[in-house]
Design a protein around this nucleic acid. Sequence first.
DNA 1: CCCTATACATACCAACTAGTATGTATGTTA
DNA 2: TAACATACATACTAGTTGGTATGTATAGGG
Lengths: 221, 221
Amino acid sequence: MTEKNPDKTRKKLLESAFFEIYRVGFQAANIDRILKSAGVTKGALYHHFSGKKELGYAVVDEVIGHWIADKWSASLKAEGNAIEVLKGTVTAAARMLRGHDENGEVGHCAEMAEVGDVTLGCPLMNLAQEMSPVDEGFRLRIERIFDSWHAALAEVLERGVQDGTLRSNVDPRKTARFLIAMYEGAIGIAKNSKSVEAIYESLEMMGEFIDTLAKPAEKAA
Amino acid sequence: MTEKNPDKTRKKLLESAFFEIYRVGFQAANIDRILKSAGVTKGALYHHFSGKKELGYAVVDEVIGHWIADKWSASLKAEGNAIEVLKGTVTAAARMLRGHDENGEVGHCAEMAEVGDVTLGCPLMNLAQEMSPVDEGFRLRIERIFDSWHAALAEVLERGVQDGTLRSNVDPRKTARFLIAMYEGAIGIAKNSKSVEAIYESLEMMGEFIDTLAKPAEKAA
DNA sequence: CCCTATACATACCAACTAGTATGTATGTTA
DNA sequence: TAACATACATACTAGTTGGTATGTATAGGG
């Protein structure tokens, strides 16, 4: 009925599926809830996607992948001092995180959660933790996203080492992975304690760690 | 039939439930699989536990809680230099992590996974990520465990600051949380990439970070 | 030895859920 | 405008799953 707009319905399905998965995970994600929230019917879903898993894959590739690319890879492409670029992305991350609207509903998720929600954590990491041991298809798609993020980070670090901003013994690849681990770990811990403050403080410490990567000032000759 | 041993069956149930939850998460955990793996029947389960959720709670409290306490709080109670104690726990963690037996079965979990399995990550963190937004009961129980871990870490740090081993501007609580975040993040990232090496390298970097907490050597007067 | 509560075993159910079969309306092409 | 493929809508199904009703055997107290 009404109108017939395949691109739009597909997009709505992806978005609703993303939020559903974001909230309860893929395995517990409910098709009917997704449909209700998207405002379309089962026929539409199974016309666009061959099944729940395919829908999940598409969410990873098209929603989460693009989102990470925008949020990170983009801001990492900034020119200038490696330390500043790195710390810039961290503070940018901090800015986009917010707590709940205190509506007292303990134990329930906000109806219209957004991506920066502290109590829901990082969509990519959530899915990675849940699905990587269970389904290789998810794992590989998620890995690709992490890899691109890692590559962008490593490039900045490599540049910093080359131009003498960073200590020469900084290993770009290891450090990049460690930075991602720190960030995701901080989000994960804060998620369980429901504390935005916890993230801020951890990101602050992450900034201090980044400072330790800098080449120390030259001693007087 | 056979024998009647409530303590033993309860323990078997808890252990089987733990591994099932460890592998696929709580929501996807299958009661019948747990029963089969425990070698008991449904009657036994529902005699000991009022339901799936109660079983999950018991797993958190009795299995995961004790496990974390043993692995961390214990080794953190060692006497001596704070730096050494901290780095000791990190290397202890590294030691207990191992990869899969390379049996080629990609995408499937080992039948009898053990707790140190890289591809399965940290049981506590897994559950925290999955259940903390979904069920407040889980969240609180998990939080208690993290808190005790955090307290043990903070105590070591506090002691280090007091006795001059660590820089005086080290904030024990923030740093403790950050260390947990680093560790859990490292495990989580390695889990998705299925790489034991990734953990080793991240734990190595974690050691370097711990070194930066030390009070710098005194300058010549 | 008896008797009762505990500790299990078995068969079954009700609810949910991904997926399908089928139908219909809309847009497009000839 | 006829014909056809795309894009949706609806009703239904088959399978799974947590939970229960009911039965039975064992252990321990009197």
